[in-house]
Amino acid sequence: MDSSKNKQDGLSVSERIEKNKQSNSSTAFVEKLVPKLLLMCATLSVLVTIGILYTLLSETFTFFSEVSVIEFFTSTHWNPWRDSYGILSLISGTLLITVTAMIIAIPLGVASAIFLSEYASDKVRRFLKPILEVLAGIPTVVYGFFALTFVTPMLEKIIPGLSFFNALSAGIVVGIMIVPMVASLTEDAMGAVPNVLREGAMALGATRLETTIKVVIPAALSGIIASFALAISRAIGETMIVAIAAGATPKFSFDPTQSIQTMTGYIVQVSTGDVSYGSTIYYSIYAVGTTLFVFTLIMNLLAQYISRRFREEY
């Protein structure tokens, strides 16, 4: 190429680059500014956590200046409109939902993961996986509607004496909602087990089932258990399904056929009712929210601890 063509004002390209560099001090400024702006954005996520903690704790503190802590954690009566605040009834409702959901989600999730990871051909997997993902993308209000108008009437035919709002139907649907999560995390954990281990087992004459149960699952166990912890956390925090289908009658009971109330359900009930800012009932949703937050945080941390502490090395 003829270098003179690139000349303007009698300068070559390299001379012009040099000249631009000297005149353009804004580049250096931008280089210094950008990381600071980005850091500010990254710090925002920490501020959100601080905001959550501050909000929950300060309002909870106010709540406990009006209500006894001991009553809150030991009484089994919850009726804020009559000034009794015993969160054990809400916790038992939450547990009832969580246990029911896990009875559904863990076996179905793990079995689906085993099928997809160990048995299904590529074609079948490519067909089934997106369907499971659709299930995960459905808004919870839709699940709640379905629990109330389809699952409950169906269960009523099987279980006489089932109340219209009940923990069973809501728990089952929460479980179904969580299946994709357990399935995909478990499948990830099983997928991380190297194929040479499967080959090692099958070369000894092991069937698929024996390979899966005795080699793949033990090797993937920490990831699988971590997925259970996350699933439990998700069930504890699930709101709309229980607000719609489980009822609004706090009771310290473990009968799934009855109407109950969960911690999340209570917060929804208060927030959709006429409660004035600054009343004890208003502050009570923060005390319940804090308890809920602590429960889910413990499960999340547990999940992280399990997958970090027992990370398998192959």
Binding site: S45, V46, V48, L56, T239, L292, F293, Q304
Partner: peptide, 28 residues
């Protein structure tokens, strides 16, 4: 690492707790 772990935990916070956050911070 702290930011990463923090994000991981935020992802696990129930959505209704974000509602409580919004209610206090923004609305009030």
């Amino acid at each position: 690492r702290f930011i990463q772990i923090n994000l991981q935990n935020l992802a696990g916070v129930p959505s209704i707790v974000f509602g409580l956050l919004g209610l206090t911070i923004f609305v009030y």
